[in-house]
């Protein structure tokens, strides 16, 4: 009835969907290493272009990737600012004094207030915020009438700017690549791929099959548990728990009234499930045959060879250029 989707998988037909999850995971790994080998901003921008080409051929809408990047935007911005402000080598590209005066502080506060109340109407909130920040900084640097409250130097060096951009592009590449993997691979296939890749760990007594089974059961029960949590919330709301308000002490009680039933039901569930699994001849640690197999095809080999070539090229570039 209700449709809950676990993971980000969106159905599609391109070569990315036809690939073996193992080769996709390996390719992701190799390309990530490549991204870390690069040292130069121009090279990594070439790589970004390459990633964009993959997106294009793979038929993945760029907006989906942008949505994937959204949660880490703040992190990106923070890293960028940090890098820009604290790397102080290379030629100076901007040197200005930021001055806070009685008049422009007022305008600044006004701008922030306007931004706060209008941001919900603006489609791309992130760029709106950046625009407001840049605007305020420009004003502090150029428009300084009135009595001076405080002032400080803002100096940006070329290395700082380049370094910051470099790290940002690298992060974007990494996130984009992993988003490609999760968008084009069903959670179950991903799980199966990981299980097979981690199989060598069996040598050090880590049972990759058991881990994979645990993950698959977790995937299976996430929609059930979400549905259950919702019902518990409604049941407690029927007893007057108002989840929208309350003081801190009430909040604690509200959360307990959700968590305790959740735990009790889950324990009962896992008990039943363990019985059902045992009754169907499941013995932890025993060998199991599998209904799902992965088939490694020539296209997978081709992709891996290509990725290895990219890696070699990056190492060559790093060492000789």
């Amino acid at each position: 009835m209700k449709n809950i989707i676990v993971g980000q998988y969106i159905p599609g037909k391109s070569f990315l969907y036809k690939m073996d999850p193992r080769s996709k995971i390996l390719a992701l790994f190799i390309l990530m290493v490549s991204a870390f080998v690069f040292k130069d901003i121009t090279h990594i921008i070439y790589m970004l272009l390459g990633v964009l080409v993959i997106l294009k051929i793979g038929g993945i809408p760029i907006m989906r990737i942008a949505r994937g990047l959204r949660p880490i935007m703040i992190l990106l911005l923070f890293t960028f600012t940090f890098q820009v402000l604290f790397i102080k080598t290379g030629p100076v590209i901007l040197d200005t004094v930021l001055t806070l005066t009685t008049i422009n502080i007022g305008i600044m506060i006004l701008a922030i207030v306007v931004w706060y109340y209008t941001r919900r109407y603006i489609k791309s909130k992130f760029f709106y915020m950046v625009l407001v920040i840049v605007g305020i900084l420009t004003m502090l640097s150029l428009f300084t009438p009135g009595t001076v409250i405080s002032s400080s130097n803002l100096t940006i060096y070329e290395d700082g700017l380049l370094g910051a951009s470099f790290i940002m592009v690298r992060l974007i590449i990494i996130v984009t690549l992993s988003t490609i993997l999760t968008l084009t691979t069903k959670p179950t296939d991903l799980n199966l791929g990981l299980e097979r890749i981690l199989k060598p760990l069996n040598l050090v007594k880590i049972n990759s099959e058991e881990i994979a089974l645990i993950i698959s059961i977790a995937l299976r029960y996430i929609p059930t548990l979400l549905d259950e949590a919702n019902k518990i919330m409604l049941a407690q709301a029927s007893r007057g728990v108002d989840f929208t308000e309350g003081k801190f002490k009430d909040k604690v009680m509200q959360i307990i009234s959700l968590l305790v039933p959740m735990f009790i039901i889950s324990f009962k569930r896992s008990d039943d499930l363990a019985n059902a699994m045992e009754a169907r001849s499941f013995v932890p640690g025993n060998k199991r045959t599998r209904i799902h197999i992965l088939s490694w095809q020539s296209r997978d080999t081709l992709v891996i060879v290509f990725c290895l070539l990219v890696l070699t090229a990056t190492v060559v570039v790093r060492v000789y250029l």
């Binding site: 995937l219 299976r220 569930r269």
Partner: peptide, 29 residues
């Protein structure tokens, strides 16, 4: 077959769940 339909469904899909017991008994794929 137990009472609670939800607490004995091990597979992620119907197909996986039918296969679960056979996998444990090492049936050929």
């Amino acid at each position: 077959v137990f009472q609670n339909p939800d607490n004995q469904f091990v597979g992620v899909t119907v197909e996986d769940d039918i296969a679960f017991g056979m996998e444990n008994l090492n049936f050929d794929r």
